[in-house]
């Protein structure tokens, strides 16, 4: 009898401790500002331009302010997310997969539609129209890539290069230039013969003579990933519901990349990407200085 009482007392003490711990953990969540980070696909001003309207839209329901955290690289973004320095992140499908593999608290809640309203996009290979490529010596080709963990980086560009030049990307000169815009501009500037990037970005540089020479299959759209470690379930549901129910007039005013609406993320959204490549095999650094 005595033993049971002690046990019950121990159980109740444990529950009290749990509740106290939860309260302590939840207390800082209330009232603090949330942190949003995006893949560095543009410069800081561009990121602010694209996401500030969406964040303001979310703030009104969350009753919390959301601030930017600018990350210099995909890798740093993922590391900071794992360190719980980020509550929400805008990521491409590959970084999302990479993050989900490393951090169980990363939860994609919505994917952003492309211009045609489809949930998914293509990566492309580009060149400057007037440039003549040394196709006879493909190993001399210089290729601009975005980021090691960018979907349109090594992951998508390598197969496109292989198809277009009949030579592997690994045999060529390549360098990570971090952003899709920079990949396009570096090709325009003549620093690279070819560049890999998101189709919509490449399209915006057509007015400067950028030519798309190859398309990848459609990959899932960019995602808003939330941190279940730093956000409460209620907050996550609020974010999800708010974005899924955003009216056209609202999301149409957001940045170009995210102005075509969202779709909920399903369990099998990333399943077909799993076989593409082993993420760990992607070179983390370019071979061109």
């Amino acid at each position: 009898m005595m033993y049971v009482e002690i046990l019950e007392k121990g159980e109740s003490m444990r529950w009290i401790s749990y509740i106290g711990l939860i309260v302590i953990l939840l207390l800082p969540l209330e009232g603090r500002e949330l942190i949003f980070a995006s893949l560095p696909y543009k410069n800081n001003a561009g990121i602010v331009e694209d996401f500030a309207p969406m964040l303001r839209y979310l703030e009104s329901d969350l009753n919390q302010s959301v601030n930017f955290r600018f990350e210099p690289s995909y890798r740093k973004l993922i590391a900071d997310f794992i360190d719980d320095k980020i509550d929400m992140a805008y990521m491409g499908p590959l970084p999302t997969l990479a993050l989900m593999k490393q951090d169980a608290s990363a939860l994609p809640v919505v994917t952003f539609n492309d211009a045609d309203g489809k949930n998914g996009y293509r990566c492309v290979l580009v060149k400057f129209t007037p440039d003549v490529l040394p196709m006879a010596h493909p190993q001399t080709l210089k290729v601009a890539l975005t980021e090691p963990l960018s979907t349109c980086g090594y992951f998508s560009t390598a197969p496109l290069i292989q198809t277009f030049t009949k030579a592997p990307l690994s045999s060529m000169h390549y360098r990570y230039v971090h952003t899709h815009d920079e990949a396009a501009l570096s090709v325009l500037r003549g620093e690279f013969h070819l560049g890999g990037m998101k189709e919509s970005i490449a399209e915006s540089y057509r007015s400067l003579g950028l030519e798309i020479i190859a398309y990848s299959p459609v990959v899932p759209g960019f995602t808003l990933v939330v941190n279940t470690q730093t956000l409460s379930q209620e907050q996550i549901e609020t974010i999800r519901a708010r974005l899924l129910n955003a009216p056209f007039k609202e999301y149409a005013s957001w940045g170009k990349e995210i102005s075509f609406g969202v779709q909920a993320v399903h369990a099998d959204t990333y399943r077909h990407m799993q076989f593409f490549s082993d993420i760990e095999s992607i070179p983390q650094e370019g071979n061109l200085r």
Binding site: T129, R189, L208, G209, L210
Partner: peptide, 9 residues
């Protein structure tokens, strides 16, 4: 577009 790209380059 090509002229613009050239000027940029």
């Amino acid at each position: 577009a090509l002229l613009r790209g050239n000027l940029y380059r």
